[in-house]
Design a protein around this nucleic acid. Structure first.
Lengths: 144, 144
DNA sequence: TCTTCATATGAACATATGTTCATATGAAGG
DNA sequence: CCTTCATATGAACATATGTTCATATGAAGA
């Protein structure tokens, strides 16, 4: 969203206080507060790990026990358990004990929806052809 | 999504191959492939950092120059630049040069929508009262 | 109760990451 | 060309995080 093109200089101006702090004011109001930011970042952070995404996508078809998950993902039971703990803490999965085994399933449909929606966004991004103007966009990949 | 309750033992069974690998098979089909997983995780990872979330939410109201962002967030110009680099690499922001200054803005509305949707999910999760059954859910918070 | 099996957890380790500090780049003006 | 100012970037550092290994927990059965 490119806002006002009529701002010739940055609003607070790094040294001088400019006379049109409109952009700044709008930004200040749009900015999420401390708690909202942290909650959002927490959710995204949990989902920002390939192993956890794989676990979540595996569970999207229904419950699985820990050893099934380990077999499916091809990683150790310990690694799965550790990641399940993270997912549990984030309230993204719940579990059900049955004898020695523990079956995990998604806590609700939110996570699933988020993944699906994000995939859509990725695909849309891919499909969208952008006009090349004076605006610049990064092309390279980067380890985050 | 709790699938078939009729599975009395885990499908692959950790030692013995069970006679109902239905859950396993469904999970295998539902699982995202390597690239999808990595793309998803990458997007979430970028958004899983409070500073970056703050930058994105500030830019949701329109473009801002780097020094404005630094002032708004109360962090150093260098930190902002470094994070903008991450956001650029993830194609979440673009920039426009104007003299010495560089104005950043969201690349498209996807990111904004994702944040809004995730906030909704958080709020819904908060509001939902869950019946306490045999199922268990983690309550504590945890550093991820 | 002793063993077995599935899972959980703590310690250790290597890697990744966010910030700061110092410095480089690049544009505008004298 | 030289200075100034906004931004970018590299190195260094502290912290966070994912995995492995070893071990603890806990349920079922002999």
């Amino acid at each position: 969203m490119v806002a006002d093109q009529e701002s010739p200089v940055c609003a607070t101006s790094c040294q001088v206080l400019e006379e049109h702090p409109d952009a700044i004011e709008r930004a200040r109001q749009a900015m999420l507060d401390h708690d909202e930011v942290n909650e959002l970042a927490s959710v995204f952070k949990v989902m920002g790990e390939p192993t956890r995404v794989r676990i979540l996508s595996a569970l999207s078809a229904g419950e699985l026990c820990v050893c099934d998950l380990a077999n499916l993902l091809g990683i150790s039971q310990s690694a799965v358990s550790h990641q399940l703990r993270v997912l549990r803490s984030a309230r993204m999965v719940r579990y059900r004990r049955q004898g020695k085994m523990v079956f995990y399933h998604l806590d609700d449909e939110h996570v699933e929806r988020l993944m699906a929606e994000t995939q859509d966004h990725i695909r849309e991004g891919r499909a969208t052809v952008r006009e090349s103007s004076t605006e610049t966009r990064e092309v390279e990949a980067m380890g985050v």
